[in-house]
Every structure is written in C-alpha cells, then in structure tokens.
Write a protein that binds this DNA or RNA. Structure first.
Length: 520
RNA sequence: GUCCCCUUCGUCUAGUGGUUAGGACACCGGGUUUUCAUCCCGGCAACGGGGGUUCAAUUCCCCCAGGGGAUGCCA
C-alpha cells in the first residue's frame, strides 16, 4: 500500500488485538454541515466509532463543507453539540487537531484543484465547458458518437472529446469550466464490500463522467472524499448503502491516482414505518428533537446501535463501552431496518429507571425549570424536594419531559379539583365528602412516611366505612395532587408535607359539601 | 427506463444442511398493586414464491416477485 502524502501517519507497533493487521485502522465520520444531525447520521457515525473502538483504531471527524450554498456554521455547532451530548470523542478532528489536518475541507481548498488537474494531465479527467443547467444534459449527442451514454442517463460527455491542449488553453483563459472524471467506456469496475461481498458494474453503467471540481473551484463529494481519505490514511469507509452506486467512480479515481482504495462497507439504511428512507415526515429525526423530548443519550445510542446490527444474543441493554467492545462487522445485517419509536421509548424507560436518584434529578431539573416549576438552577430547597421525589416518579417516566406533569403538585398549588374529579365511581358528592373527611381525619394522626403503617390504618378505616381502600384514597389523591394519576399517595404526602396535604383536602371537602348541598 | 442492493414473527433480531426456528418491542390474557406505572407469569405470531442440489433445506445455487437505493456543479 502506498503511504499517504500527508505526514503523521501512525504505524501500529504494539497492539495485541490486531496482530493480523500491521496497520492501525483509521476510520472517519465525514458529515457535511448542511443540516441538523439526524438519526441516520448518528447511525453512520456510531458504527464508524464502534468499529474504531472495537479494533483499537483511530476515529476521525472531517467536515465536508464543500457545498457553499448549503453549508452553515449553525450546523457545525449542532454537530458538536450533538456528539458532545452523545459522548462520542474523536481522536483527530477540526477541534482536536491531528497530524492529517486540516480536517475541514474548505481549508484544504487548493488540494482539490491540484489533484483534479493532475488527473487532467494524466488524461484521466477533462475540462468541461457546458453550462450548468439541464440543457447541457438534454442536448442530444451526435448520433454517431460512440462515447455518448444512453439518452436519459447522465451527462452526454459532450466535452470529453475536446482536444486536450485546446481545453487547457480555454480553461487558462478563464472560461468557466468544471473538471469531469473520464469513466472508461468499456470494461468493468468492482470491489469487495466488507459486508455485501463482491459488487461490480460494467463501466457503461457507471455514472458517465461525474463532476470532480465544480465551477466555483470547490470539489464535489467524489473528489474530496477520495483525496482526503487517501491523504488522511483512512483504511475503512463505512457509509450508508445509498452510496453504493458511487463506489465504482471512487474506485476508478483511486485507480487513476494509482492509490489503493480503503476497504468499503456499506451499511443498511434506516427506514421509516412506511419503508422509505427515514425523514422528517416520520416524526422526530433530528437528534436535538430527541434530546428536547427527554430521551437519554444512552437509550438513543443503545437503540440505534441495534438497528441493523446485533451484539450478544439474549441481551438488549448495552452501554457505549459495551458496544465498543462487542461490535463486529460480521454482525451487521444486510437488510434495511425500520426505525421503531415505540421500542426506543421502551429503552428510554429502561434507562430512566437505571438512573441513580441524584442523576435523575439533575436530568429532569431543566425540564422542571422550563415548566417554570423550579428555578434554573433549582434552589437548594427545590433540589432537596426533587431528590425526595425522584424515587416516586422514576418508574413512571417514559421521557424526562414527563417529569413536570408528574411532579407539578409538589411545586405548585393545584387548582381545587372539580367535583366530578373527586368522586369515586360509586359515591355521590355527600359520600365522597364523608370519605374525604374520614381520610383527612385519619391522615392527621398518622406518619405518611411510614408506608406500611399508613396503609394498614387506611385499610382498616375503609373497612369500617364499608368502602374499598381505593375509594377512600381516591378523593384524597385528587385533592392533594390535583389529578387522578399520581405517584403513591402516602409517599407523595410525606414529600409534600402533611400540613399542605390537609389544607388541600379541606378545600376539596368544602367543594364537595357545597355540591352535596346544592343537589340535595 | 437502466443499474445496484436487500428479503426469518407487525417491528428489531438470533440461528442451523436434520432445532418444538430462540429473544426483545408491540399486542392479547393473567398475577402483584392505592390511581398510574413498574414488576412477574402465560399467549399470539415468521423463514416471500417457484425451480434445482441433497437422504434432508429456512440454511447452498438459479429464476421470479416484492421492497429499497442510485441515475445532480447535494452529500
């Protein structure tokens, strides 16, 4: 294999774990900052990351900002935010540096023209002066032109036959142009995909003469990715299967340069429920949306890692470290995978339940603050209250964003509930009032933090009254928490404070009494 | 249209030339329970179709069908 032109190439000397590879694996995630990081990007990044970690290789981040009209700094920021949140780290990248930098393609600008020109000089590429519009494509090629591809298939190779010296002269004279790769007219091009095996094309079926260098002087993805992967010493390229049709032209380019291509591995796609490429219309797809909704990064990573890949049979909870250890290309599936929000939700619940109380508190605090229930950051008193309440809601949250509703009664005075809410199924207002009064009377005498004793006392009282325990508790629950659905009552009251609970109860009694009198 | 890729329960997947084809989510039923959850137990449910190869194919080969992707001076 050729050594890359750029310095700093690291040869692997120690590693016990990759004795079969003399060379340390170098993989990259190379997003273009033209949109928010979404599930698909994260999946690609994750698999590259896991592969690097699993073989003790190097994970590199490279920004492919060659689309001047769509690239934007807000997306770069989003990229960093996203991966910081997910807990990925890269060994080399724009911010961390490295020996193969710069890692931002716009900062490598000169490199691409240089390489494109080199290809032109070698007769492997050519200047094209066609206007950048559909007319160039639709223009009927000369009938007898053997080099023209079938109608409707790509660029008609109009400029391919312009005399090289003449083309050079026009380009030097400043005539607007692009540089296109000469795809061989016959023969075949193929490669061995690490996952899919051998794939090959007749060159006649390969995208005819794709643009390498745009008229603005920036490279297209094809040129930039080949040049940079080579110069950065990338050994393995893992990308989504939508890239398969571009593979032959990349191979042809590596060939033209006389470089050895990296190993290619095309990952199965992630689809929405309708079987099409996952997109906004399927629901949340931007990672940011998941974060704001209250998903835990560990849950998202765990779930995404299992889309199209398996690890240890019979287990489904894996940390990023677990995954880094267990990941193998052999366990990647070839078939596309459907993104299932419901299963992700289950993972999220699992991870929320695994959180230590203090950790849960710090996780839900921002959501509580957004709901204006606590300060940001919470006061000491609020933190204490959250900590006391954490065990009550831990197994009831599907998302962190569920916390405000579940805990509202501890931080805000609920409205006095409407009568209908306070009525157990079989009681009228008078009956409910009696039940609630009995409950309050009893509550005053017990210690709600002693769960078992409290329950025993209420159970006994319910029996005396000839009603079910639930019917005795429900009016109290609604009076105290403002809703029919709440964490366990005694513990909730213990956290809230008995005095507050009694006061809320009295207000509800008043409402029930008034209703009873009114209807009597 | 052309080229390429894919095909195990609804979904994510395990798996083997001979298995009762396993697990998870969802769903259904039951249990625990103070509402809601959690938790526990049980159930439903799959090898796309057709040809081969073979004593034996879900597993190996071919064809078909279906699905997806590509066909940009976007990546």
């Amino acid at each position: 294999m050729n050594l890359p032109d750029a310095g700093g190439y690291t040869w692997f000397t120690t590693p016990y774990r990759s004795r079969r590879n003399t060379m340390k694996a170098r993989v990259r995630y190379a997003p273009s900052p033209t949109g928010l990081q979404h599930i698909g990007s994260v999946r690609t990044a994750l698999f590259n990351y896991l592969y690097a970690r699993s073989v003790g290789g190097t994970f590199i981040l490279r920004l492919e900002d060659t689309d001047r009209t769509r690239s934007d700094d807000i997306y770069v920021k989003n990229l960093y935010d996203t991966f910081r949140w997910l807990g990925f780290y890269w060994d080399e990248g724009p911010d961390t540096g490295g020996a193969s930098g710069p890692y931002i393609q716009s900062e490598r600008f000169a490199l691409y023209r240089e390489h494109a020109e080199k290809l032109v000089d070698m007769g492997k590429a050519y200047y094209c002066f066609c206007a950048d519009d559909k007319s160039a494509k639709k223009e009927e090629p000369a009938d007898e032109d053997e080099t023209a591809p079938p109608a409707g298939f790509g660029y008609p190779r109009t400029c391919r036959n312009i005399d090289a010296a003449e083309a050079k002269r026009r380009a030097s004279a400043g005539e607007p142009h692009v540089i296109r790769l000469k795809i061989p007219l016959d023969g075949v091009t193929g490669f061995d995909d690490l996952l899919l095996g051998h794939i090959e094309w007749k060159n006649a079926d390969v995208n005819p003469d794709p643009v390498l260098l745009k008229s603005d002087g920036f490279p297209t993805y094809h040129l930039a990715n080949v040049v940079d992967d080579h110069l950065m010493g990338i050994t393995h390229v893992m990308r989504a299967q939508e890239w398969i049709p571009s593979a032959p032209l990349h191979i042809i380019m590596y060939d033209a340069f006389g470089w050895e291509p990296p190993k290619l591995c095309h990952l199965p796609m992630v689809l929405g429920q309708d079987g099409h490429k996952l997109s906004k219309r399927h629901g949340a797809t931007a990672v940011d949306e998941f974060r704001k909704k209250g998903y835990l990064e560990a849950a998202l990573i765990n779930y995404v890692a299992m889309l199209g890949c398996s690890y240890e049979d019979g287990r489904d909870i894996f940390s990023l470290d677990d995954l880094s250890r267990l990941f193998t290309i052999e366990h990647i599936n070839k078939a596309p995978a459907v993104f299932d929000y419901v299963k992700l939700e289950w993972f999220n619940g699992q991870y929320i339940r695994m959180l230590p109380d203090a950790e849960l508190v710090s996780r839900i605090a921002p959501f509580m603050a957004d709901a204006a229930l606590v300060a940001s950051p919470p006061t000491a008193a609020q933190s204490a209250l959250l900590l006391a309440a954490a065990p009550l809601v831990k197994e009831r949250l599907k998302y962190l964003s569920d916390a405000p509703e579940a805990l509202r009664f501890l931080f805000a005075e609920p409205a006095v509930p409407p009568v209908a809410e306070l009525l157990p199924k079989k009681l009228d207002a008078a009956g409910a009032a009696r039940a609630l009064e009995a409950a309050l009377e009893l509550l005053a005498t017990i210690d709600p933090s002693d769960h078992d004793a409290s329950e025993a006392a209420f159970r006994a009282r319910a029996e005396e009254l000839g009603i079910k325990l639930g019917d005795l508790l429900m009016p109290l629950r609604v009076a105290v928490t403002g809703t029919k659905v709440s964490p366990p009552l005694f513990q909730s009251i213990a956290v809230l404070g008995k005095a507050t609970a009694l006061a809320r109860g009295q207000k509800a009694v008043a409402v029930l009494r008034a209703a009873a009198d009114g209807s009597a």
